[in-house]
Design a protein around this nucleic acid. Structure first.
Length: 583
RNA sequence: GCACCCGUAGCUCAGUGGAUAGAGCAGUGGAUUUCUAAUCCUCUGGUCGCAGGUUCGAUCCCUGCCGGGUGCGCCA
C-alpha cells in the first residue's frame, strides 16, 4: 500500500530531521484530490507549522531533505501553502501490478491484528415475507462480512431472526381455526400472513378473539406441546423459504440463532441484574436506570422534559412478567461473548433503533462486557410519499418482487443484443446482472441517508450501476478470449500512454480502499472506487488498443487488463456481486 | 421539550479540515470498416439550508436559527 509506506517514510523523515512530533501525531497521507499535483499528498507540514512556529514551506523542505522514497516516487514537490505532493514512479507502479497478478487477494494485505467479529444482520421475522426494508441490513451486513473476512478477520455471521414475538398468539389461533393446508403447501409465508391478517382484524373488532389469542400465547410460552409444535412448524416453513431467498441472493449465515434460542436465559439474566443492582423494580416492571456515570445529555437512560432530567429506563421485564427486545439482546451478548469469545459485535440495524442500542450496550457494559459493540445504523427506505414504510399496517414492496423485476429487465436488455448466446446463458447473465443491480444500488449509497424507493432507480441499467462495472469486466475477458492460444505475461512493462499509467495507479489503490471500508463500515467507499476503476478502464479501452499492439506495449496492456479483471472481480465479490464472462 | 440523522446542480445522490465541490439521470452536440456502444468524448447546469465562530484555510469542526425525518417505560 503506497499510502501506508509513505506515511511511515514521512514519519521517519521527521525523526531524521530532528523534528519532535506531538504525542499521537501521525502525518496524514491521502490520495491526491487533484492528480495534476501528484498521486498522493500530505498536509503534515502545514498542520505542524503552527505548533512548531515555523514557516510551513520551510518545514516541508526540511522533511523533503530527509525523505527517503526513491524506490517509490519519481518526484516530490512542495506546492501552494506547503503541500507535499508525491508522484509514484513507473517502476513502483509496475511492481505493484505484478503483485496484483500474483496475489490471490489482488494485492490487499491482511490486517495486522485479526479480530473475532460477530456480524448481526438481516433479521427477518418468522411468518412474514422479506420486504425492501430488509435490503439495507442484508446487503450491507453481507458486504461487511465479506470484506472483514477478506482482510483477515475471523467473522461469524448470525441471523437473529424474530421467531418469538407476541404475534404468535394470533398465528396459532389462526392456524387452529382457519388454516388452508393446500395454500400452506404452495406458499407457506403467504398463507401465514393471510391468517395473521385475518385474525388481527378479527381481534380488533372482537375483544373475545383477542383474549383467545393472548391465551394461546401464554400456552406457547409455558411450553404447551400442541402450540409448541405449531410454532416449530411455522419457523421451519419460514426458514425453508428464507434459505431459498438467501440462496438466490448469495447471502450466507453461519448461524440462525433466533430470539427463541435465548428464552431460557432471560429469567436468570433479569434475576442476576436485580441482584447486582444494575436493574431495579419500578412501577411493577424491571428496568435499568441511569447510574449517573456520564453527563445527562450523554446518558441513554435520561431524557429532558421541561428543564428537568427524567428517567428513560430500559425495561427488561414487563409488569406481567414477560420479557422484551432488550432482554433478549442482553442474553444474546452474553452468549456471543461466552461461547464465541468475540472481540467485537456489529449490529447492522436501522437508525431508528439508536437509543435502544445505546441502552443495551451501556447495560451490557455494566454487567462487565468488554466486547466492543457497534451499531452500524442505516437510514430508512421511504415510500413514494416520502414517509417511512409502515411494516405493521401498510403494504410495502416485497424483496423477491424487486429482485425478480430486476432480473426481468436485465433479461430484456440481454435479448436486444445479438451475442449468439443460448437462452440458458442469457438467464444466468440476467440473474447476475439483475440481482447485482439491486445490490449495487443499495451499496453505492451512503448508508445513513434515507432514500425514497424507486423502481427505476433501483433497477436502472444505465450510468453508475452494476452493469457498468460488469461491462468493464466483460471487456477484459473478451480480450483474453480473442487471444490466440495462451499468452505468458512477462515482467517487461512500460507505460507509453497516460491512460495506461492512470489505470495502473487506480488499480494499485485497491489495497487502500478495501481497508478503508471497515474504518467506518461503509461499503459505498468500495462501490465508488470500483466505479472509478471501471470508468478508468473504459477510458483506457477507448484510448489504447490491446490486441493490435505489439511487444512490450501489448504485454503492458494485457497485464493491465488482467489486473483490472482481478480487481473488479475481487472487488465486486466483496459487495456480494457475481461476475459474468459475457453480457 | 430533549436526543440522533438529514438539508450539496432541474431530479437522484457522492464527497473531504485543503488547491478550480463531483457523478448518474434529464437536456445538448459528436465518435462505430471497433479488442462487446450495457462504451467514450462535448457543452449546459451550484449562495454546498441561513447566520455567526474556530482556523493559514470551513461545504466539512463548534454555536444559534430555519426546514424535513426518527426516537423517547412495559411492541420487536
Amino acid at each position: 500500500m503506497f499510502r501506508a509506506v509513505l506515511t511511515d517514510r514521512l514519519q521517519a523523515a521527521f525523526t531524521s530531521a530532528g523534528i519532535a512530533l506531538p504525542e499521537g501525531f501521525v502525518p496524514s497521507v491521502v490520495i491526491a484530490s487533484d492528480t495534476r499535483y501528484g498521486d498522493y499528498q500530505s498536509n503534515a507540514a502545514m498542520v505542524l507549522s503552527k505548533q512548531l512556529k515555523q514557516n510551513p514551506r520551510a518545514l516541508a523542505q526540511q522533511i523533503v531533505d530527509q525523505l527517503q522514497v526513491t524506490d517509490l516516487c519519481e518526484k516530490i514537490s512542495i506546492d501552494g501553502p506547503g503541500f507535499l505532493n508525491f508522484t509514484v514512479s513507473p517502476t513502483a507502479l509496475i511492481q505493484r501490478l505484478s503483485v496484483i497478478l500474483k496475489d490471490d487477494h489482488a494485492g490487499v494485505p491482511p490486517v495486522t491484528q485479526p479480530k473475532r467479529i460477530v456480524i448481526d444482520f438481516s433479521a427477518p421475522n418468522i411468518a412474514k415475507p422479506m420486504h425492501v426494508g430488509h435490503i439495507r441490513s442484508t446487503f450491507i451486513g453481507d458486504s461487511l462480512a465479506r470484506v472483514a473476512r477478506f482482510i483477515g478477520h475471523m467473522v461469524i455471521t448470525d441471523n437473529h431472526v424474530g421467531d418469538w414475538g407476541t404475534q404468535f398468539g394470533m398465528i396459532i389461533h389462526g392456524w387452529k381455526t382457519q388454516l388452508d393446508q393446500a395454500k400452506l403447501k404452495l406458499d407457506p409465508i403467504q398463507e401465514l400472513v393471510t391468517v395473521y391478517k385475518a385474525i388481527n382484524a378479527a381481534a380488533k373488532a372482537d375483544e373475545a378473539v383477542l383474549t383467545v389469542c393472548k391465551a394461546e400465547l401464554v400456552k406457547l410460552q409455558q411450553g404447551d406441546a400442541e402450540n409448541l409444535a405449531i410454532w416449530k412448524e411455522c419457523v421451519r416453513l419460514t426458514l425453508e423459504q428464507l434459505e431459498k431467498v438467501y440462496g438466490a441472493l448469495d447471502v450466507k449465515f453461519d448461524h440462525y440463532l433466533g430470539e427463541s434460542f435465548y428464552n431460557d436465559a432471560l429469567a436468570p439474566l433479569v434475576a442476576d441484574m436485580l441482584e447486582k443492582g444494575i436493574a431495579k423494580v419500578s412501577e411493577g416492571a424491571t428496568a435499568v436506570f441511569s447510574d449517573g456515570s456520564v453527563k445527562p445529555d450523554n446518558d441513554p437512560f435520561l431524557i429532558s422534559d421541561k428543564d428537568e432530567w427524567k428517567a428513560a429506563p430500559c425495561i427488561i421485564r414487563k409488569t406481567d412478567g414477560g420479557f422484551l427486545y432488550a432482554t433478549t439482546d442482553l442474553a444474546t451478548i452474553d452468549y456471543r461473548v461466552k461461547e464465541w469469545k468475540v472481540d467485537e459485535i456489529w449490529y447492522v440495524v436501522g437508525a431508528p433503533q439508536q437509543l435502544h442500542f445505546r441502552q443495551v450496550f451501556a447495560a451490557a457494559k455494566r454487567r462487565g462486557a468488554t466486547t466492543e459493540m457497534t451499531h452500524i445504523a442505516f437510514g430508512s427506505i421511504l415510500g413514494p410519499d416520502g414517509k417511512m414504510f409502515k411494516t405493521r399496517s401498510g403494504e410495502t414492496v416485497g424483496l423477491l418482487e424487486v429482485i425478480d423485476e430486476a432480473i426481468e429487465r436485465a433479461r430484456a436488455a440481454a435479448e436486444e443484443k445479438e451475442q449468439g448466446l443460448s437462452d440458458a446463458d442469457k438467464d444466468e447473465i440476467a440473474r447476475i446482472i439483475g440481482s447485482g443491480s439491486v445490490k449495487y444500488a443499495e451499496l453505492s449509497q451512503n448508508r445513513l441517508t434515507d432514500y425514497k424507493f424507486s423502481w427505476d432507480k433501483m433497477l436502472s441499467l444505465q450510468g453508475n450501476t452494476a452493469p457498468y462495472l460488469l461491462n468493464a469486466y466483460v471487456r477484459t475477458r473478451s480480450i483474453f478470449r480473442k487471444l490466440e492460444g495462451s499468452v505468458e505475461l512477462t515482467a517487461d512493462l512500460e507505460f507509453t500512454e497516460p491512460a495506461e499509467r492512470a489505470l495502473a495507479m487506480k488499480l494499485a489503490q485497491f489495497a487502500e480502499n478495501a481497508h478503508d471500508v471497515l474504518e467506518d463500515h461503509r461499503p459505498n467507499l468500495l462501490a465508488n472506487y470500483l466505479y472509478e476503476v471501471a470508468n478508468t478502464y473504459h477510458g483506457f479501452y477507448e484510448a489504447c488498443n490491446v490486441l493490435r499492439s505489439e511487444g512490450t506495449i501489448r504485454n503492458t496492456r494485457l497485464t493491465l487488463c488482467e489486473a483490472t479483471s482481478r480487481v473488479l472481480k475481487t472487488g465486486l465479490s466483496l459487495l456480494g456481486i457475481q461476475t459474468t464472462e459475457r453480457m
